[in-house]
Design a binder for these strands. Structure first.
Lengths: 210, 210
DNA sequence: CGTGGCATGTAAACGGTTACATGATTTA
DNA sequence: TAAATCATGTAACCGTTTACATGCCACG
């Protein structure tokens, strides 16, 4: 009975017939639950090993004659039982961490332009996410998926769409408000940092996740 | 120039005139940005020390004659400059982790009752959160807050309200759908685990955060 | 045949929480 | 004065990411 959440995502993915190797499992996670759960190889590979030792998954090492190094894993019966048990347990609310909101909250310290830049970036990402989600939705309708869990998947998808849409609506209002602030507050915004601050636009957002 | 995000929340809180001690800062974080950012003492106290060493905050140790152990901190000018610089930097998208959605996604493995329990719990928490947020909103309207950053705070508040509301709407639809599944799929739900499974209701959610 | 991307893995570093420990202050 | 809670801190632990290392495979 692992307490590690990574273990359970892996069991779950194997349970719905996704991937047999660490690489495939990771890809499946990214493609299906990627917008609300992430895992890195550094977690997955050691996890698979542990699960195999505990007998929750069965490991099939690469066939000696084979040319690949690929390890395949499959869910065992006890693995499935263990996963079901976990599903029934109360879910844990992970500590919230939203740096965008944090920066917006303190935005008064930097002036409207800075926050406008951040909100635009959020808008951009949410639009992109919404596209992706709508794409999945369309694919789901077009026959394809006839998996027994389909209706549950649609539920998570619907929440994703609803939240993203709500965020986008908010972006419009927020931009309007920030522009009002900018016009009214005019130029006497809080001083930019030391030197070389030529009131240029905010840096483009690199290094972003999700 | 710290890279640690904790450092910046602290600088930010000191910047808007909140608390001077570690304890107060933590309380301020919880009360203002608690729904999207959290910090523990184990982070805050060491952070304050570091910031003092770097000269970003000024430390006033407890007056010798005083009866308290309380250390007070105040933002320095270089601290403020540093904070402003950070604000302009692109924000980081923290890795998504929503165990509720994860369990819902895999809910087909456990049958509708389990998911219904989880959704109800989410509903409960969101209702509570919405109450809190509305309370803050009302307090903000009633004169009180005349802080220069007020409009930025309202923006974050509005997003919180919008998202919570959207989640609540979704809960209703999700519960309806899950009950449909239950009725149609009837009793031949996936087998409950091993023994002692008396088809009793889901465990109440303890150990939950937020 | 070489280059780039696929696939697999490991070790170290880090951020963060938890659990613990303790003194001071209030309240019953 | 006993109990509760405020206030401060430390140390260990753990999950996670990052960076690195490596072999296989397809394609030009």
């Amino acid at each position: 009975m692992p307490k590690n959440r990574t273990d359970y995502v892996i069991l779950g993915m194997l349970g719905i017939g996704s991937g047999g190797s660490g690489y495939e499992i990771r890809k499946a996670i990214e493609e299906t639950v990627g917008s609300f759960w992430g895992e890195s190889y550094g977690q997955i590979y050691p996890s698979l090993r542990r699960l195999a030792v505990e007998g929750l998954v069965e490991e099939r090492p690469p066939e000696s004659k084979s040319n690949t190094r690929r390890h395949e894993y499959a869910l065992t019966e006890s693995g499935r039982a263990c996963f079901r048990e976990w599903l029934r347990l109360p879910f844990q609310n992970d500590p919230p961490r939203n740096e965008f909101l944090l920066k917006l909250f303190f935005g008064g310290e930097a002036g409207p332009q800075v926050s406008i830049g951040h909100v635009r970036e959020v808008q951009r990402r949410n639009r992109q996410l919404l596209d992706t989600l709508h794409g999945i939705e369309a694919a789901a309708r077009n026959a394809s998926w006839q998996h027994p869990h389909r209706r549950y998947w649609m539920l998570t998808l619907n929440l994703g769409i609803a939240l993203t849409q709500a965020a986008l609506d908010w972006c419009d209002a927020a931009l309007a408000e920030l522009e009002t602030i900018e016009r009214s507050s005019g130029d006497h915004a809080p001083a930019p940092e030391a030197s070389g601050a030529k009131s240029d636009a905010i840096e483009t957002n690199e290094g972003a996740r999700q």
